[in-house]
Simulated scan of single mutants.
Amino acid sequence: MLESLGIGIGVAILGGALGGLALELQYRLRPAMQLDVTAKEWNLEVYEPQRYQIVGDVTLRNPLSRFEIMVPEMQCQVTLLSSASLAGITSTIQIIPQHPDAPARADNYWFAYIVKSGKTTQAEIRVEILGADLSHLQAAWIQIRYVTYSPAGRESQVSHVVVPLQFPTPDTSQRWRPTPKADVLPIRTHLLTHLDHPVEVVRHYVLPHARKGDIVTLGETPVAIMQGRWRHPTQIRPGWVARRLCYFFLPTSSLATACGLQALVDIVGPLRVLSAFVIGAVAKVLGQPGMFYRLAGEQARLIDDVTGTLPPYDQFIVLGPQHSQQIVDQIRQETGLSAAIVDVNDLKAVKILAATADITPAFLIQALRTNPAGNADEQTPLVLIRPTDPHPPT
């Protein structure tokens, strides 16, 4: 009798443990209760000396097949970036819901809306900027804050849009800088954002300076920014691996914070990061440093943590670019210029992420060794290279 009771209790405990484990596994594997938010169509519809008006659309899509997500709140905030004081400059924001099945209220109140599974809704955002002289404004950083309410609870979310407000005219009188086998020309652009495309930027800013045989290089961080590959730390949730391993990296590393390292974990997975760390630590003891970055993948070297680039992206973690070879090949095809995407620093280190087939790496490295684009706020993400050697690279 007692033996049977003991077996029954054991089975009950085991069943409870397995049930609890299954419930926990189901919880961890369930999809994230988040909306897919895109903000691609933004235009500077009024661009007058004393008045700017920015109009953009935000699309919210529920990717879940079973669950509904409610959006009870949406608000916007704008931060203006300027080369002069903002005194006397004001901005106002209007959010106009554009739900497919419910008209917007006349008082602009955002009423709680249900985004059904697989469905989308939109909102139009209007930003008006007024001032006696707006010529010093460089960009508007728009933060779209919204609340989701779902089986996961009430969660605050934020999406970011950067809209340039200053557009330099290509200056053909800019000074070229000599190097042993080429002349180089850093080219200033507007503040690049996810609203830009590398080909169009090259066409607008580089072609007025270029001639046959020139090479254009693009910085890897500006390319990543144009691809929208930047994340605010509030959007990143560091896990076990990132929180524990980040302390072992040098303070100057972009992986030395939990959010910076988690950005890499989100790309390649925790197991690869942990394995690369363990093997890298052993290799370092044996006199072979740098093994972690080789094993963890290219993104480990390319991530820029907070403060790693110019405002307002200094507030974000910027990932490395994607599809780099496709981009340079497209630039070559559509503009006729040879092209490369590079990572250059003030320590004379030049890393070529991708280059068209007609570029000799050694020539490119020598031309860029002095880092003509700079690492501060020069806002010169493009460098035009003109070979001066009688035998240019082929």
Rank of each mutant, 00 (worst) to 15 (best):
M1R: 12
M1W: 14
L2E: 15
G6Y: 03
G6Q: 12
I7F: 10
G10F: 10
V11P: 02
I13W: 06
L14V: 05
G15V: 09
G20S: 06
L21D: 02
L23I: 09
L23W: 09
L25V: 11
M33S: 13
Q34K: 15
V37K: 03
E45C: 02
R51E: 01
Y52S: 01
I54V: 14
V58F: 11
V58C: 08
R61T: 01
N62H: 13
N62F: 06
P63C: 06
P63E: 02
E68I: 03
E73S: 07
Q75E: 12
Q77C: 03
V78K: 12
T79Q: 02
L80H: 04
S85G: 03
T90M: 10
T90W: 06
T92W: 04
Q94K: 14
Q94D: 12
I95N: 08
P97G: 05
Q98E: 12
P103Q: 14
A104W: 04
R105C: 12
K119L: 11
T120N: 06
H136K: 13
L137A: 12
Q138W: 02
W141N: 01
W141I: 00
T148M: 03
Q157N: 14
L165P: 02
T169W: 09
D171C: 09
Q174P: 02
R175P: 00
W176M: 11
W176C: 08
P180V: 08
K181S: 11
A182R: 04
H190F: 03
L195S: 01
H197T: 14
E200D: 15
V202Y: 14
H204E: 08
Y205Q: 13
L207D: 11
L207N: 08
P208R: 05
H209D: 00
A210Q: 00
A210K: 02
K212R: 12
G219M: 07
G219S: 09
V223E: 09
A224G: 11
Q227C: 12
T234I: 13
Q235W: 01
V241E: 11
Y247H: 15
F248P: 00
P251K: 07
P251D: 04
A258L: 07
C259E: 14
Q262C: 08
Q262E: 15
Q262N: 10
D266H: 07
I267R: 11
I267M: 10
V268L: 05
V268A: 05
P270Q: 10
L271F: 14
L271I: 14
V273P: 06
V278N: 03
I279H: 06
A281Q: 01
V282Y: 06
G287F: 01
P289W: 01
M291R: 03
M291N: 00
F292R: 08
L295D: 01
R301L: 12
D304R: 13
D305Q: 00
V306Y: 05
P312A: 04
I317W: 00
L319I: 03
L319E: 03
Q325L: 10
Q326R: 15
A339S: 11
D343W: 08
N345G: 05
A349D: 13
T356F: 06
D358T: 14
P361K: 08
F363W: 08
A367N: 10
L368W: 02
L368T: 03
E378G: 06
Q379S: 10
Q379V: 02
P393F: 04
